[in-house]
Design a protein around this nucleic acid. Structure first.
Lengths: 341, 341
DNA sequence: TTGTACGCGTTATCAT
DNA sequence: ATGATAACGCGTACAA
């Protein structure tokens, strides 16, 4: 392990000088000396210890991101956004999966705090009536007091900046699309029970239905966030006909699961029934699913940018909320309601 | 920022004692003293600096993983395997996307080296005739000399342990399945050009076809690794009929893309044509795609385990290769070839 | 059982 | 323009 001392010795200069050259300081150093140092560093295969650097500087250049499950494309897109700007800024991204467990979230936050991360991004949604919430709040506050910027990507009231999307409005808008197509009886396949985002999307759906005077035609059934959930829920729907005019799924994967069940049963989409999702991930594009596009990548990159820009000791914006806009993406799984049924 | 000194002072003990208690050392400490230290640490909200720890200990407990693109499920599953065992062992995972660029791979390896990662896992495949290969080799060697364990998840001859799967055999076996079903003219939609894994899978396909005396019925067309590639390639196939008996895709996403194109064209799968993929990711399961299951999660977790176990100064196993087994998963997109066409 | 003191690799301050 | 040195927070050898 060759250190700055070794380089300095090999170059015949003081460590301070070597440091000035190798750390890109603006302190003046003669061209000749500079060359000697660079040559020595090269020859000795010097690798500056980011650890030692982080200890002495106020900024570790470590970017933390907490996701529920990186295998879930919703989160991998966010993580990609984070890592892209982190890398560009010379940071390294630390990733942890927390499996929707607030307790795990707290413990991984601690781990990242131990490494003095410049910031930690909470990508996941919170829970309604979460018993661990006070503990999380405390952990976030303590991290902040230590200079670690937290950013939430969902409405969680964590006492930190929030960069999110209006899930209620997203569900509202896609429901509106369905209603505008003439659908009256619409079934919403919900997300995992207890999650805040599940409730927000459900309420958005119900609000639009009520406003359209279609409250009676609105139905909500339990689901989840994966193919399986959409498939199962839809099978149940098919079993107890009549079918609704349309199905709105909690997210794209659920919608694709629903699509599969419907087609296997020989039910034409969108001929007999319309199907829509939320998120607009790659799979939605592929199957031509009508959905709402959420700026997931931007949420990740913006959060990272925020952390980098407020890096050392800038004024914390308290807990400002930035809401990014979503966009309706009509595709081939929704169509005007057939005049007769 | 409260440090060990603060805790020691608050507890009325020496820093060494506080360290012994808080770092879980096996050095004896009286129960009474221990309690005082723990209480002080608690009260002061002490967070041990993993940075300082890493500087003084031979192990940073930082686990590095380099993927092409975390949004690609192939890699997110691997990353999940890595993070799960890393977390269990008290490590934190550092993730970097390298976009299939060897140059980026080198630069991210350097970044992780600067943080003194205990090890770095190369999840991606290499390239045939890669001009950057010498540079990568050198970087890996230097990292190893510094005590950083590298592990490759593909045959790349990086001079480090390799934990992989036999892509040639995987393609061979799925081709065999197709042949056994009576298919004679089979088209292989290749992966991205230039990648080692692309070549391995193609050769595995061709080998089985030749051995079956079906070399004349084997055709390879350019593709990629995403839906789009499968869709486009299949559209071309459809345009210049006659259709082959079966299509083997470089991976599941390509196969699903092919499936979509075929069904849109009103071609029955597997009635008129069989379709198969490779990888067995979630989407394959969902659409009932016949494929080969690759132990991606295990590759990630094994690689991480290897790094953790050889952590401080254990004997490096040089460049041993561990090949994990794959498994044919017949599902509904392949069927016996219809007697007449 | 507890305490003292050094070193890990940097950067920054203060001379020179 | 360059050099000496004090931190940063921790673990540990050595002393008591």
């Amino acid at each position: 392990m060759t250190s700055l001392v070794d380089v300095a010795r090999a170059a015949g200069v003081a460590v301070a000088t070597a440091s000035r050259v190798l750390s890109g300081s603006d302190h003046p150093v003669s061209a000749k000396t500079r060359a000697k140092v660079v040559a020595a560093a090269e020859k000795l295969d010097y690798s500056p210890s980011a650890l030692a650097r982080a200890m002495v500087s106020p900024n570790s250049r470590l970017m933390g991101v907490l996701v529920s499950d990186i295998v879930n494309p919703y989160f991998s897109v966010i993580a990609r956004g984070v890592d892209d700007v982190a890398t560009r800024a010379g940071y390294v991204t630390m990733l942890s999966n927390v499996d929707r467990s607030t307790a795990t979230e707290i413990s991984r936050l601690q781990a990242m705090r131990d490494y003095r991360a410049a910031g930690v991004i909470f990508a996941g949604s919170g829970y309604v009536d979460d018993p661990h919430r006070p503990g999380l709040l405390k952990a976030v506050r303590q991290a902040r007091e230590q200079g670690i910027l937290a950013v939430s990507l969902a409405d969680r009231d964590l006492g930190c900046p929030t960069i999110t999307v209006d899930h209620h409005a997203a569900a509202h808008d896609i429901t509106d699309h369905l209603v505008a197509l003439g659908h009256r009886r619409i079934t919403f396949i919900e997300g995992p029970s207890g999650m805040t985002v599940t409730r927000q999307r459900r309420e958005g759906f119900l609000a639009r239905m009520r406003d359209a005077g279609l409250g009676g035609g609105a139905r909500c059934v339990p689901g989840g966030f994966d193919y399986e959930a959409g498939h199962t829920a839809t099978l149940r729907l098919i079993a107890r006909r009549p079918l609704p005019d349309a199905v709105l799924a909690a997210n794209d994967e659920v919608a694709v699961g629903a699509l599969g069940a419907l087609r296997q049963a020989g039910i034409d989409v969108p001929g007999e029934i319309s199907v829509a999702g939320i998120n607009d991930l790659r799979v939605a594009q592929h199957v031509g699913l009508t959905t709402v596009s959420l700026p997931l990548y931007e949420m990740g990159s913006l959060a990272a940018r925020h952390i980098i820009e407020s890096a050392p000791g800038a004024a914390t914006d308290g807990a400002a909320t930035t809401t990014l806009s979503h966009r309706l993406v009509p595709r081939e799984t929704t169509a005007r309601r057939p005049p007769e049924r």
